[in-house]
């Protein structure tokens, strides 16, 4: 056991001894403290979480023009050339009927934030080699999927500064129940 841990345990148990001698109360939380300090900077490349406000996005940029090649090579075999999906693979392009009601719920007509697309594709796609795309490739293919959904133009360059500002049509379509439990 590293010295630091020993010291912490001893410190903790001495405090506990004193505390329990004084009050008779068992302060379980203080007995063991084994977490190794790390710096947030060390986690920057490892942490893949992208928040809806864009925080966590790595520096980079990409457009649909650049992304079409990535999509063709890495995504189209499963999601289809136009993003309609196939049995066992979800569509990436939403579809509404003439009344504007969703028939296929997907990125363009359902997802509330564009950051989710970056977060998910980077961590989970393609399923045979997740986390294999470079940052540039992720920006490019995200731009391409948004372009397929008519959300951005083909030339629109997505960057770490503007991805969170992409106007997602269904961003107000959710009722947050998190505090209604």
């Amino acid at each position: 056991m590293p010295l630091r841990k020993c010291a912490k345990i001893i410190k903790g148990s001495m405090a506990l001894l004193i505390l329990s001698a004084l009050t008779g109360v068992f302060a379980a939380d203080d007995i063991v403290q084994l977490g190794q300090p790390v710096s947030e900077a060390d986690l920057r490349d490892w942490d893949l979480i992208i928040m809806p406000d864009g925080s966590g996005l790595p520096e980079g940029a990409g457009s649909a023009v650049q992304g079409s090649a990535v999509y063709e090579q890495q995504c189209a075999s499963c999601h289809g050339a136009s993003g309609k999906g196939m049995p066992g693979v979800p569509a990436l392009v939403g579809e509404n009927n003439s009344a504007g009601e969703p028939v296929v719920r997907a990125v363009g007509n359902y997802w509330p934030s564009a950051t989710t697309l970056f977060d998910y594709v980077r961590r989970a796609m393609p399923p045979t080699a997740p986390k294999s795309l470079s940052t540039e490739q992720v920006y490019q293919v995200v731009a391409y999927v948004l372009f397929l959904n008519d959300i951005i133009g083909e030339e629109h360059e997505l960057t770490h500064n503007n991805l969170s500002t992409v106007d997602m049509p269904n961003r107000n379509g959710f009722v947050d129940r998190s505090q209604m439990q």
Partner: peptide, 13 residues
């Protein structure tokens, strides 16, 4: 620890 939900794919899509 965050100041809001991350809106992961599995809590949106």
């Amino acid at each position: 620890l965050t100041s809001g939900p991350a809106n992961f794919r599995d809590e949106t899509s």
